[in-house]
Nucleic acid binder design. Structure first.
Length: 428
RNA sequence: GCUGGGGUGGCCGAACCUGGUAAAGGCGCCAGCCUGCUAAGCUGGUGGGGCUCUGCCCCGUGCGGGUUCAAAUCCCGCCCCCAGCGCCA
């Protein structure tokens, strides 16, 4: 949620920042917010005056009653004031709600280092790690390789649940688990707190964690319950401290979350959707940090280093892009994507590292205090970054480590999590 | 799911029965005074918001509604916590 105080204090600064997103509707929303805020304060002032009047009358009545004096006239007057208040309160509520909705739709302030651009084609490659593997044969897609090996069954996944569902079998299922354990162990070594969150959230928590569009297009709802399946561990971890005030001495709070992720993927038309790349359900290890405002930019880089280290240890070739102003999304002030190399020569997103500054925390009402016993100082900053999404990491491993005979070598760091298995081989 | 008890500032708690406009009291925290320093002690402050901003006012007792001039207090619905019972992977 956007900070109304920033709009009041410096609307032009906000306007210039929003312009960078090249989306005229945001500027309209800003104007709307300014207008609604003006109206809201006007009504609020009037209503407060009336409430003061009512309170005075009430106290007057109480005093008279104590003295055994008649109060009918005053009570009649108070009744009238109460009616007026009710009318104004309806109005106040309406304006306040609309203002809040508008503030929810205005995206976060972008960091100055975010490159200017229109869409994903304008993302700036800031780093390339490793080199594309060289094959002296025609490399295959993970779908072909894994289906041939008898480790992946997409057809039966479709039969029982629909397209973009799948069965992982034998060593491939083991590989999924191995990747999870690998990422968890690496992050735990760095002091990240392992957490397995609820896999469902109620609406209030969910709307705090994501924007409306994401909610609409991605989130599965449980019928007849106020419950929604999580699309990533980021969301339940973010919501964990909803309406709380954290102690600065406990910050930064660093989490490594483990969970399945469920996504409707409505509106994925035109995007790359093959095989395991864009599925309705996958497992992911997620990094999440709550911190003080002044430390979030350093921690954003730390999260980035963590992820890069994981891919490096897996021996994967990837690149890092600084996501441009037109592609970044509403919550993040800055975002890096890690894109892995795939067998068709393209780089595709495997993970995403966002500093949401105070935007998500304001929606979820997560504040911090300098010391126990002190009043709240302000909102925390929240950051989230993929550690490993197993499905996409498996694609990278399979396509980059494939052998001419159709088998797949398994990265050395995973052997111990694979019971010593070093290769994916044909299974029946 | 059932029965009973409960939910009030950062924490503990008072006011609830008997409606009169909450936070008394204590702890913590901040500032000042005092002190060689610290502690103790003393004084003031310590949730959110609005305005005509040395000040004035409003909101705030788990959430939502109702009754009333007036609700922490009475009534209804919901959520959560505790205890016991039931069911159960």
């Amino acid at each position: 949620m956007f900070d109304i105080n920033l709009i009041r204090k410096n609307p032009e600064l906000v306007r210039e920042n929003l312009k960078r997103r090249q989306e005229p509707k945001y500027l309209e929303l800003l104007d709307r917010a300014i207008e609604l805020d003006r109206k809201w304060r006007e009504i609020k002032t009037k209503a407060n005056e009336l409430r003061a009047k009512r309170n005075k009358l009430s106290q007057e009545i109480a005093k008279l009653k104590k003295q055994g004096m008649p109060t009918e006239t005053l009570m009649e007057e108070a009744r009238k004031v109460a009616q007026e208040i009710e009318k104004l309160e309806d109005e106040e509520r309406k304006v306040e709600e609309e203002l809040k909705t508008v503030l929810m739709k205005i995206p976060n302030m972008l960091h100055e280092s975010v490159p200017y651009g229109k869409d994903e084609n304008d993302n700036v490659v800031v780093k390339v790690v490793g080199k594309p593997p060289k094959f002296n044969f025609q490399p295959k897609s993970h779908i072909e390789i894994l289906t041939n090996l008898g480790l992946l069954d997409l057809e039966r996944g479709s039969k029982v649940a629909g397209s973009r569902f799948y069965y992982l079998k034998h060593e491939l299922a083991l590989l999924d688990l191995a990747l999870q354990r690998f990422a968890i162990d690496e992050l735990r070594k760095k002091g990240y707190i392992l957490v397995e969150p609820p896999f469902m959230l109620n609406k209030r928590a969910y709307m705090g964690a994501v924007d409306f569009e994401f909610f609409q297009d991605q989130i599965y709802k449980i019928e007849n319950e106020d419950l929604y399946m999580i699309a990533t561990a980021e969301h339940p971890i973010a919501a964990m401290f909803m309406d709380e005030v954290l102690n600065a001495e406990d910050l930064p709070l660093k989490f490594v979350g483990v969970s399945p992720c469920f996504r409707k993927e409505v509106g994925a038309h035109g995007k790359y959707t093959k095989g395991l790349f864009r599925v309705h359900h996958f497992n992911k290890i997620e990094q999440f940090i709550f911190c003080k405002p002044e430390e979030s930019w350093d921690l954003h880089e730390e999260l980035q280093r963590n992820s890069e280290e994981l891919y490096k240890k897996l021996g994967l070739h990837f690149r890092v892009v600084n996501v441009c102003t037109g592609d970044i999304g509403e919550f993040a002030a800055k975002k890096y994507d890690i894109e892995v190399w795939m067998a068709d020569g393209k780089y595709r997103e495997a993970g995403s590292n966002s500093n949401c500054t105070d935007y998500q925390a304001r929606r979820l009402n997560i504040r911090y205090r300098e010391k126990p016993g002190m009043p709240p100082k302000g909102f925390v900053h929240t950051l989230n970054n993929t550690a490993l999404a197993t499905s996409r990491t498996m694609i990278a491993i399979v396509e980059q480590y494939q052998q001419e005979d159709g088998t797949v070598k398994i990265p050395r760091v995973l052997w111990k999590y694979m019971n010593g298995i070093k290769k994916l081989e044909p299974r029946k």
